[in-house]
Amino acid sequence: MTEIVMRGLDDTCRLMGVLHGTDFSKPKKIVIEDLDRSSDQNRALHAMLTDIARQVDHAGRKWDVLIWKRLLTAAWLRESGEQPQMIPAVDGNGFDVIYERTSKLGVKQCAELIEWVAAFGAEHQVRWTQKDRWGGRYD
């Protein structure tokens, strides 16, 4: 399997070279998809969630990083015009919220989520412990 990351039209020469060297005696599947979030984005997001978990109360208590990730991702999706689904729990006790996992976010979506989390943190006077190495650009 050949995988090529294309960042612009300049990368088409490399792609064409791969295509010209491909044996098409059997059908091939070519998929163009957005890149998943980067490891830098993942580290930035989790550092921000850790700071929020340590500093912000919600509904009268502190929550761990995983709960904050779920809460903030669901809120970001709603604000972005997407709706996380609330489905009756399979055991009949309450509802479960189903939303897109952050590990499945593309680079652009993750950058938007990070910006949203940064705004949430600013509104709640979160003091960030991780230095901003990206100058506000997370893509």
Results as ranks from 00 to 15, higher is better:
I98C: 11
Q83E: 14
L72E: 00
D96R: 15
S39P: 03
I67C: 10
A89M: 15
L66I: 12
W76C: 01
S38Y: 02
Q41I: 01
S38V: 02
R70F: 11
D96V: 14
V56G: 02
R54G: 04
N93F: 07
T50Y: 01
A47G: 04
S80P: 06
G94A: 14
A47S: 09
A53S: 13
D64T: 02
Q83K: 15
W68L: 02
K62F: 04
D91F: 04
R101Y: 09
R43Q: 09
E82W: 09
D91A: 06
D57G: 10
G60N: 12
V97K: 11
G106Q: 06
T73F: 03
Q41E: 03
A53K: 04
A47Y: 04
K62S: 03
G94C: 13
L49V: 02
A75F: 08
D64E: 10
S39L: 06
T73S: 04
R43C: 09
M86E: 14
D64C: 07
I52N: 01
D91V: 10
R43K: 11
G60T: 09
K69S: 03
A89Q: 08
R61P: 05
L77K: 10
R43V: 04
L71R: 09
D57M: 14
W76P: 00
R101D: 08
D91W: 06
T73Y: 05
W68S: 01
E100F: 05
K104N: 14
D91L: 06
A44D: 10
V90H: 15
M86L: 14
D57I: 11
W63H: 04
M86K: 12
V97A: 11
T50S: 06
Q41K: 02
G60D: 03
H58A: 15
L105G: 05
R70G: 04
T102F: 00
E82T: 10
Q85G: 11
L49W: 01
S103H: 06
I87K: 15
A89E: 13
I98H: 08
T102A: 06
D91N: 05
L45P: 00
F95Q: 11
A53G: 11
G106V: 10
R61C: 09
Q85H: 13
R43Y: 12
D40W: 02
T50N: 01
K62R: 08
S39E: 10
L66Q: 13
S103N: 12
T102Y: 05
T102S: 03
R101P: 07
I52H: 01
S103V: 08
A74N: 13
L72W: 01
P84C: 08
P88Q: 09
D96Y: 13
